[in-house]
């Protein structure tokens, strides 16, 4: 099939970008979205033109490297998958697709569809961990964990840090990302001692990075490739409010 692409091209963080149109023919339904871009990039490279830059690595939906907007939807039209898992059979011959990078103040565009998501790392560095030195861990089965809590913690921990939640949020909020980590650790007995401090520190860093607030639109949950629930946002709100009240004592 033939696909027309409208791709955001921007040569450097400082440069002004614009959309460029490409016709890609010979697209097979079995190709992944990124393989279709590979084919286009090979053509561009053969002509000595700069290929379209985009982050990607595992190409199986787990590393969280890939991600851009396809026709105004983060990670494209299919639910609960990433751009790298999106296959061209989701589109039809003659379709026109607009590919645009994640847009947020805290995610500056580096080149084309590639953005800088280091703000996420700094949020984790602010408190997304249990302070346990190597070697100081107690026997693993010494602390039983309710299966329900363990399962729920896992669901939160499934976050791949791709940034789609920020990209889709009308306020460019990082609440789903932050709350997933706060909840994952907060739900486990291992994370309990630092629960208050973690919530306060991580939210403070999140705010400092310039992400927006949560209006409870739910866009983040809808595009999350791991289907992480906004219930975790409520849980983080609760944790933060409690922690702040407790800190007054």
């Amino acid at each position: 099939m033939k696909i027309t692409l409208n791709v955001w091209r921007q040569s450097s963080p400082e440069a002004a970008g614009s959309f460029v149109k490409y016709d890609v023919d010979g697209v097979s339904a079995d190709m992944s979205m990124l393989e279709m871009l590979d084919v286009l990039n090979d053509r561009l490279e053969s002509k000595g033109e700069a290929p379209i830059a985009f982050d990607h690595d595992c190409r199986e939906g787990i590393c969280g490297s890939c991600g851009f907007m396809i026709n105004g939807v983060a990670h494209g039209p299919e639910k609960e998958i990433t751009v790298c898992q999106t296959h061209m059979r989701s589109f039809k011959d003659g379709d026109e697709l607009t590919l645009e990078p994640w847009r947020a103040m805290a995610f500056p565009v580096m080149r084309d569809l590639m953005v800088d998501r280091s703000a996420f790392d700094r949020i984790i560095q602010a408190g997304g961990y249990v302070s346990v030195r190597t070697g100081s861990a107690p026997e693993a089965n010494a602390t039983p964990v309710m299966k329900e809590h363990a399962d729920m913690a896992f669901e939160a921990a499934a976050c791949i840090g791709c940034g789609a939640c920020v990209a889709a949020c009308p306020n460019a909020a990082a609440m789903l990302f932050t709350s997933a980590k706060v909840s994952h650790l907060g739900l486990l007995p291992q994370g309990e001692p630092e629960r208050d401090k973690r919530a306060i520190d991580m939210v403070a860093q999140m705010d400092k990075e310039g992400f927006g607030h949560c209006s409870n639109h739910g866009e983040c949950e809808a595009v999350c490739p791991k289907g992480i629930s906004v219930n975790f946002i409520a849980r983080m709100n609760r944790d933060l409010l409690k922690a702040t009240l407790r800190s007054s004592r």
């Binding site: 907007m69 939807v73 103040m105 927006g212």
Partner: peptide, 13 residues
């Protein structure tokens, strides 16, 4: 938080 807006944005939820 979003100085540059999308040329195209489709609400999902």
């Amino acid at each position: 938080a979003r100085p540059a807006t999308y040329s195209k944005w489709q609400p999902q939820r």
